[in-house]
Amino acid sequence: MRFLRLRPAALRLMIGALFVAAGVLVASDFAEARAGRSMSFGSRGSRTWSTPAPTPTAPSAQPMQRSATPQTQSAQGARAPGMQSGGFFNRGGFMGGLMGGLLGAGIFGLLMGSGFFSGLGSLSGILGLLLQVALIFIVVRLVMGWMRARNQPSYAGGARPDPMARDALNRDAMNGGGAAAPRSGFGTGPRGKPIKLEGADFDAFERTLGEVQAAYSRADKAALATLLTPEMAGYMAEELDEMAREGLENRITDVKLLQGDLSEAWSEGDAEYATVAMRYELKDVTLDKATGRVVQGDPERTEQAVEFWTFARPPRGVWKLSAIQQG
């Protein structure tokens, strides 16, 4: 079978357009402006580079992307299977699949004796790759949307239940009165001494969720400093400064915790830590400060986020947010 061959200039143009389209898709899917900007950053003591134990609210978490805690060799080995770091072709998601397809097409061309780019040189080959990637992307988005809608709790016909389920959290997530039991294949490890939390602790976690988002929306660095560890306060101050330089401001309203459960709780050295998975809703809009024009988001649309928030405190002291990891 003969295929239509593209000229080098046309081939470069098509590949360039493919990368631009991929960048637009990724940006539209993940560009969010709430506190943390959909990144995983902060510190969880000796468990910083380990994966939090899964919970019904969030079965998995993204690995830490930025932290002041050094990444030791043992911590690197404790990652969950399949979570690799480093290298452009090791990236997951849309771009990882895109680069894998391009590389595979080139290798196929080499094996057929027609040069590295011959696998991409046919119009049918490139269109086939584009179609497959687009279909997979659309299907995944539809399935995720359906699952979120299915998991949306219903409070009609009665009082709204406690989203943190405080009594059940310690009973179900604690292993013999200790910290959350590590699940097989996850690198939580036996670091630190398990602790048990009280209802007041979960009240503090839920309250801090709203207070952090409200302070971030006001660009109130002083308030954030009272709610966050110094490391986290520094990261969020950088985000606020970046938005200010771009002439933007973030408006976050109607924050409501929908579901939460304990992942891990432990003490080490002179600090106690608790990692909680939380699913919450909010309205998140980015505005142009000079004109008030909406740059991103919809002021009438409620969004949902699923994240692991880790809190730290001196023994029996005040909890402060020390890390956020995306679910």
Rank of each mutant, 00 (worst) to 15 (best):
148 R>F: 04
148 R>T: 09
149 A>D: 13
149 A>G: 13
149 A>R: 15
149 A>W: 12
150 R>N: 10
150 R>K: 14
150 R>T: 11
151 N>K: 10
151 N>F: 07
152 Q>V: 03
152 Q>N: 07
152 Q>K: 12
153 P>K: 13
153 P>A: 10
154 S>C: 08
155 Y>K: 02
155 Y>Q: 03
156 A>I: 12
156 A>C: 02
156 A>P: 00
156 A>N: 02
156 A>E: 05
157 G>C: 01
157 G>Y: 01
158 G>P: 00
159 A>T: 04
159 A>K: 04
159 A>D: 05
159 A>L: 06
160 R>E: 08
160 R>L: 03
161 P>V: 15
162 D>S: 15
162 D>P: 04
163 P>V: 06
163 P>N: 12
163 P>G: 10
163 P>Q: 10
164 M>W: 12
164 M>Y: 14
164 M>H: 09
165 A>T: 09
166 R>H: 10
166 R>V: 02
166 R>N: 03
167 D>A: 12
167 D>V: 13
167 D>G: 08
168 A>V: 15
169 L>E: 00
170 N>S: 14
170 N>E: 15
170 N>A: 12
170 N>W: 11
170 N>M: 14
171 R>A: 13
171 R>E: 08
171 R>D: 07
172 D>W: 09
172 D>N: 10
173 A>H: 00
173 A>Y: 00
173 A>L: 02
174 M>C: 08
174 M>I: 05
175 N>R: 10
175 N>G: 05
175 N>T: 08
176 G>I: 06
176 G>Y: 08
176 G>W: 06
176 G>R: 07
177 G>K: 05
177 G>Y: 07
178 G>R: 07
178 G>C: 05
178 G>E: 09
179 A>R: 08
179 A>M: 08
179 A>Y: 01
179 A>H: 03
180 A>W: 00
180 A>K: 02
180 A>Y: 00
